[in-house]
Design a protein around this nucleic acid. Structure first.
Length: 706
RNA sequence: GGCGAGGUAGCUCAGUUGGUAAGAGCGCAGGAUUCAUAACCCUGAGGUCAGGAGUUCAAAUCUCCUUCUCGCUACCA
């Protein structure tokens, strides 16, 4: 690893369809940034590239919904994302975007290169086509009535109401979201990349050659390779994206996953004219930081593309992180269950490093982890502030009180085992942090930094210079003892600045200010030294590095999170796995409701429904079905069997005796072998919980509802 | 129901190829202290390593069964 001449670090391109949340930071951008800052401190040749991913179907759909152009959508979110990254100190050497001209050219050249080598398969398939809009329709562009749950707004690939995965053929009354036209089948040609041709090579490269990759990454690759690879279409019918650079490819663009990783190359081109050094020389170490949902693209597909092209280096490592949950629940952009970075920055100004600390110390490196606001508070108050911050502060305060505000002398002849031990600890900490970062174990590395400050506190406590100071009059050596302690504590503080710098750069900066030293001191080679601050040098007054986070702030955040929660709206999710959200924080409840109202009907349509009040007289779980309950409902004139998918919300014994409203004239339907005669009406609250619709008081079963 | 991953101290997690390690941080309790952001320092309680069976001289660590959790998937409003 040391024979690399240069390092190229990429971080997954965030999808420009929404802002970034803390899960993105924890999973990808923060570890990448820590790694890069560390490498820079090592004075290694490192470049850190990233940018917004701006193509793909979800962006066109969002544009359509908001009545703006796709370009306007990506312009908006690119700006927000870029600003969040900057404010959080994610120190890209370049943060580009895939709508740039250089990226279009690079991607097209790449495609053309493979095409000219005859590495694609051309296949003609039938796809749905909108004759009014004169365009092919991705499955997502087709809506219709769900054959399973009768939701009239199901998408061609999935019904978001009932979760069924569908194909457009299954939809009842399919129509185009573009023009409302009825889609027709039409032949279309696409270019497929035969991944199976690279299977043997990939196995050798990964399974045999990269056993050091993280378990989650290696395991997932192995599973993909064991299951066999297939050709994948690398083009799409769309107007938004990078045009396929072939004469007979009108209306076709590159598949967003073909062009997105090439964005790393384009960004490097924009960054430096020596870009080829980073991409084409074998002594470059290429590292992709991503979330776990990107593993297959970065470990299988993109390397196969690079291999096919032939002139590029392959990733040395792909340290993918798992996901970060929030307060025990999975992040959901559509439910707005997320902590948005730009909002955090507004709510906790000047506390960017605190978030970096919490996200790193609790990073989902080996498995999904949970972010809680209480945990955030605890980590800040009892680790950052009380241990690290307090050590620095008491060192400075004592130095001003007992050493005249100057770095005191170190009397070597007076040094004892404790002094020698803490100095050894400083040197050891440097080694440990360094090794852990090189192994992408950022959580452990950060722990070692905090642990060093913990040792500092212990050392100072044992030396108790404030006690020694009481004997200054009678003890000639007292001042020397004090000087030695504070000399070492100050050198330790300087070391802490160097070690914490990759993790908490703003904090390191503040510490430099207090010590009146220049940035150069932060170079990694200085770590482990106890000659960083010159004897006699006068230092500034301490500055509180981390304030305490109050209970009220935590309560506010938890309330904000809960009140912001919205019911899932009919919002398209991405057609590609991605590290980013596809929903904006502006999804308000009103908007959700407004956009959710079905098309107008006349009274006669309503009158067709026969709604009646019934009483549940028996309920039991349906075998081999998680969600189904078999209910017997008394309608006065008869007792019916109704199968209802509410088992996750209610226990059978709890709902016997409840009155409910049912649709009495719904056509019977068999589920799990049981015929269901009707449907129970349910309301779903913002939290996704179901509630019965029933009369205020018990009334006679069979009563009509209108 | 199928596939995958996982259940280790109150919480968040480490535990490498089976052998004196059942651990860390936080939290909690007690003590000590006051230079310091009511901080620091010391001590302590706490776990039948989900449960059961098996392999072994030896299992948190391997095998099987049960159970629970999470993800994908199936049934569904």
């Amino acid at each position: 690893m040391s024979d690399y001449k240069r390092i190229l670090v990429t971080a997954a391109l965030p999808y420009a369809n929404g802002p970034v949340h803390i899960g993105h930071l924890a999973g990808c951008y923060l570890p990448a940034d820590i790694y890069v800052r560390y490498q820079r401190a090592q004075k290694r040749d490192v470049k850190f590239v990233g940018g917004s991913d701006e193509h793909g179907v979800p962006i066109t759909i969002r544009a359509m919904k908001e009545g703006i152009t796709p370009q306007q959508v990506v312009d908006k979110y690119h700006a927000i994302i870029k600003e969040s990254m900057e404010q959080m100190g994610i120190s890209f050497d370049i943060y580009s975007r895939t709508s740039n001209k250089v990226h279009h050219e690079t991607s097209q050249d790449f495609f053309k290169n493979l095409y000219d080598k005859n590495l694609f398969e051309e296949k003609v398939t039938e796809q749905f086509y909108d004759e009014k809009a004169k365009t092919f329709l991705a499955d997502r562009y087709i809506t219709g009535t769900c054959p399973v749950c009768a939701n009239p707004n199901a998408y061609g690939d999935q019904c978001e109401k009932c979760g069924s995965s569908l194909s457009p053929e299954q939809l009842i009354n399919p129509r185009s979201t573009l023009s409302d036209a009825v889609p027709v089948k039409k032949e279309t040609k696409h270019w497929y990349f035969p991944l199976q041709h690279y299977e043997a090579w990939l196995k050798e490269w990964i399974i045999d050659g990269h056993k050091e990759w993280k378990n989650n990454v290696y395991g997932q690759c192995k599973s993909w390779l064991d299951n066999g690879l297939q050709s994948r279409a690398m083009t799409r019918d769309s107007s938004w994206g990078i045009k396929v650079p072939l004469p007979d490819a009108e209306g076709k663009v590159l598949y967003v996953w073909f062009d997105a990783p090439i964005g790393y190359i384009s960004a490097t081109k924009e960054l430096t004219e020596n870009w080829a050094d980073y991409w084409c020389k074998d002594d470059t170490k290429l590292v992709h930081f991503i979330g776990k949902d990107n593993i297959v693209f970065h470990c299988i597909i993109f390397p196969a593309m690079l291999k096919a092209h032939g002139n590029f280096v392959l990733p040395d490592n792909v340290p993918a992180n798992e996901f970060l949950n929030i307060e025990g629940d999975k992040v959901s952009t559509s439910r707005n269950w997320a902590v948005w970075v730009h909002e955090y920055i507004k709510d906790f100004p000047g506390c960017e490093d605190v978030l970096r600390y919490v996200l790193c110390s609790n990073a989902p490196e080996t498995k999904d982890n949970d972010f809680t606001w209480k945990g955030f508070q605890d980590a800040n108050n009892s680790e950052l502030a009380s241990i690290f911050g307090n050590f620095v502060n008491r060192t400075f305060v004592l130095m001003h009180k007992l050493c005249g505000g100057k770095v005191p002398k170190l009397y070597e002849e007076m040094m004892d085992d404790k002094d020698r031990q803490i100095i050894a600890d400083i040197k050891a900490a440097k080694e440990k942090v360094e090794n852990l970062i090189e192994q992408y174990k950022f959580r452990d590395a950060l722990f070692e930094v905090i642990d060093l400050s913990r040792k500092g506190n212990k050392y100072m406590q044992e030396k108790e210079p404030w006690i020694v100071a009481k004997s200054l009059a009678e003890n000639a050596d007292a001042q020397k003892s004090i000087d030695n302690c504070l000399h070492i504590c100050l050198q330790l503080t300087a070391n802490l600045a160097i070690l914490i710098n990759p993790f908490l750069p703003n904090t390191a900066k503040k510490m430099l200010g207090m010590m009146k030293v220049v940035d150069k001191m932060l170079e990694w080679q200085n770590a482990g030294s106890i000659n960083l601050l010159s004897v006699g040098y006068s230092l500034r007054a301490p500055e509180i590095l981390f304030r305490k986070i109050e209970d009220s702030e935590i309560t506010t955040q938890i309330e904000k999170l809960k009140s912001g929660l919205v019911k899932p709206v009919q919002e398209p999710t991405s057609d590609k796995p991605q590290v980013t959200s596809d929903n904006s924080q502006e999804t308000t409840e009103e908007k959700a409701v407004a956009s959710n109202v079905k098309p107008e009907i006349v009274y006669d349509d309503f009158a067709k429904l026969d709604l009646k009040v019934g009483k549940i007289v028996a309920a039991e779980k349906v075998e081999k079905a998680d969600k189904l309950l078999k209910l017997s409902v008394d309608l006065g004139f008869e007792t019916r069997t109704i199968v209802s998918g509410i088992a996750l919300h209610f226990k059978p014994e709890d709902i016997v005796g409840k009155q409910v409203v049912i649709v009495a004239n719904l056509a019977p339907r068999k589920m799990r072998g049981i015929e269901s005669n009707g449907m129970i009406l349910m309301a779903e609250d913002a939290g996704g919980k179901l509630h019965f619709i029933n009369p205020e008081q018990d009334i006679n079963p069979g009563a009509g509802v209108s």
